[in-house]
Design a protein around this nucleic acid. Structure first.
Lengths: 135, 135
DNA sequence: GTATGCACTTACTTTTCGTTAGTGCCACCC
DNA sequence: GGGTGGCACTAACGAAAAGTAAGTGCATAC
């Protein structure tokens, strides 16, 4: 943010005011990275500090190595997570959150609390819906 | 929630304590419905009151009719949105949020505010990342 | 010296998604 | 009164994404 972007770098679809409802807005890309299939669990999984790749993979039940790697790369590119290679013997890789990542993780954690608290209600709603459908 | 679920209805994977990190937890299903490809925008798009199908579709840039219909059905089944047919002439359909939906929408709105406020930072991060990769 | 863990990448399959077209009904326009 | 368009979807098909399995090179543990 220290250097301004020249005006000609702004394309026609690159609105001045960010809006996730707009298809080509940068914030929409970020939303998809963060709330994609494995984005939420990845970000929240890094909330309590630096975690190694395979530890994170074990924490997030169901994620494949491929998808975790891909998700982490996208999030790193977007400035949500940081990848660091520790020069230990043997060397290992640690992932952690940026300042932006921590803000995102806080919001997502609040969301998850709501969702986890709603499971009984949701299961009941599903049963009622399916009963209506079957009839 | 007025009637208790018999103990035998709980399967082995249906933990007593909800945890989104567990693959088979109901809360994980709900997380995927809410944060799926179009879930976030659908829920937040209903935040200011009842909206008709095609109005919502116009609001969410890029969504297809098929995916919006599918997303709304899943969210209805999970008890996040309500579908109501108004008996006007001609009749029309309105979607709105449940109490749970409103709580979810509030959290998601806070998240979106963070994301929309981070676009410049994110664009810079992307450029830096790509420059590193190209080198 | 065999097995396992680490942090990935690549090739292949399956699932999901997007695109297009079609449905029946009604209102509006000229 | 015949054409156009909106409404709220569903169905069929090709394209994109995700899941699965195996391979990589190095290092430690047994």
């Amino acid at each position: 943010m220290t250097d301004a972007r020249p005006l000609e770098d702004f394309g026609p679809t690159d609105a001045m005011v960010a809006d996730v409802f707009q298809r080509d807005c940068t914030s929409r890309q970020l939303l998809e990275a963060v709330t994609g299939r494995w984005g939420v669990l990845t970000v929240v999984g890094l909330r309590d500090g630096a975690v190694r790749f395979n530890a994170l993979r074990r924490r997030i039940d169901g994620v494949s190595e491929k998808m975790l790697a891909q998700t982490l790369q996208t999030l790193e590119r977007d400035g949500v997570v940081v990848r660091e290679v520790r020069a230990t013997i043997p060397p290992h890789v640690e992932y952690s959150l940026t300042a932006l990542g921590r803000r995102v993780a806080d919001d997502l954690t609040r969301l998850i609390d709501v969702l986890e608290g709603a499971t009984v209600e949701v299961a009941a709603s599903q049963r009622a819906y399916d009963a209506r459908r079957d009839a």
